Amino acid sequence: MKHSLDILPLQSWIDTGDKPLIIAGPCSAETEEQVVSTAHLLANTGKVNVLRAGIWKPRTRPGEFEGIGSVGLQWLKRAKEETGLLTATEVATAKHVEEALAAGIDTLWVGARSTANPFTVQEIADALKGVNVPVFVKNPVNPDLSLWIGALERINGAGIKKLGAIHRGFSSFEKTAFRNEPMWDIAIQLKTIAPELPIINDPSHICGNRELIPYITQKAMDMDMQGLIIESHIDPSVAWTDAKQQVTPAALADLLDNLSIRHAASNNPAFDDKLAELRQQIDKLDDQIIKQIGDRMKIAEKIGEYKRDNHVTILQVSRWDEIVQKRVQLARALNLSEDFTVKYLELLHNESIRKQNEVMNTKVNAEV
Rank of each mutant, 00 (worst) to 15 (best):
L348E: 15
I303C: 04
I7P: 08
G304Q: 12
E211V: 15
K175V: 15
E338I: 10
G227L: 08
A24E: 08
D144N: 15
E30T: 13
T60C: 04
T248V: 11
T60I: 07
R52V: 01
K162F: 02
A88N: 08
I105A: 06
I230P: 08
A125D: 00
I200R: 02
Y215K: 09
S204V: 08
Q281C: 06
D242L: 05
I160P: 03
G294I: 08
K2S: 13
I303D: 08
Y306S: 07
E211W: 10
L85D: 09
D295H: 10
A94L: 09
V141E: 14
G157D: 00
T115Q: 04
K274P: 00
N267Q: 11
L128F: 11
W75Q: 03
P269G: 06
T60P: 09
A243L: 06
T341K: 03
I323T: 11
A300K: 03
L85W: 05
N361I: 01
V36R: 11
F340M: 09
T120P: 02
M221V: 01
N132W: 00
G69S: 08
P182A: 07
N357H: 13
D235V: 12
R168H: 04
N139F: 03
K363F: 07
L8F: 01
Q316F: 02
E231M: 07
V35G: 06
N267P: 00
D18K: 15
K355E: 14
S28M: 01
I160R: 05
T89D: 07
E277K: 14
H263R: 12
V312S: 08
N49V: 05
A43C: 09
L163N: 10
E98T: 05
L252F: 12
